[in-house]
Write a protein that binds this DNA or RNA. Structure first.
Lengths: 141, 141
DNA sequence: TATTGTTATACTCTATAACTATA
DNA sequence: TATAGTTATAGAGTATAACAATA
């Protein structure tokens, strides 16, 4: 558990993420979305929705900022706020059908772009990568 | 090379990175730096400096934005712009001794924070993780 | 009193394009 | 003409704190 290993893994992780962001940001901007807005849509995708609090924790967007981001998404017709019946302090945020569609349309693009690059990568390598990232994630959480 | 593997790896990668950012952002803010500013310092650290163009490509900060970020870093005394003698269109950006110190002071903190979490992770796992991230990076570049 | 989310403020980042200086 | 970097502008994200409504 030498610190050289930690440093190197962190640096690699950051470089991979940065490069991935570079490749995907074109898709995001083509949809007229910012990174923060896309982050919200990606987090809400394939869920039944969640509170602002939960959404903020998952995306690392603080509540003050979140209000503005959600305002803009709502204005575009991608998300919806509905007040909870049981606890009227809570809002339930979810994607509209249009928002769902954006989500469903975007990911295949990103995946397709990735597939070109990873066409010849053996499945075994992916399985090992997933395994290792899973372990890393478990320790980071 | 099923797309399920690609999606899953990307999602894990993003989650790891996000969690790491969450953990390290406290350190960054304590120094009075923003993410963009820290990104510049981290990129310049352990180098002899580089041009704005190169710095922009590595950090994904566009040239217009970079001017402002460098202005603020220079004002804080962390970076320096010197005009190139051979091609007077270029600037050479590098860390000042104070900037070097910030760089040298920050990373050990981050590493130490990580070490607590990874104390019991076998070295072999790190080696495999590094190997896989290296392969991933090579394909993303 | 504690919690959820909004509002307000000041600053920073972002994208884009027009511009200056150098090559 | 092409390139490196600055300036200008409008919009968006950020941190923080004060605030309203609900519990």
């Amino acid at each position: 558990m030498g610190e050289r290993h930690i440093m190197r893994s962190i640096r690699l992780l950051a470089q991979c993420m940065q490069q991935f962001e570079k490749l995907s940001s074109r898709e995001i901007r083509q949809l007229g979305l910012t990174h923060a807005q896309f982050d919200i849509i990606a987090t809400l995708g394939n869920t039944t929705g969640m509170s602002c609090k939960e959404l903020g924790e998952k995306t690392l967007i603080t509540k003050g900022t979140l209000t503005g981001v959600l305002d803009r998404l709502e204005q575009k017709g991608y998300t919806l706020r509905t007040r909870s019946c049981t606890d009227r302090r809570h809002f339930h945020i979810c994607l509209t059908p249009l928002g769902e569609q954006i989500f469903a349309d975007t990911f295949p693009h990103v995946v397709h772009m990735m597939q070109d690059r990873f066409a010849d990568m053996p499945t075994d390598d992916f399985i090992i990568l997933e395994e290792q990232l899973g372990k890393l994630k478990a320790r980071l959480m």
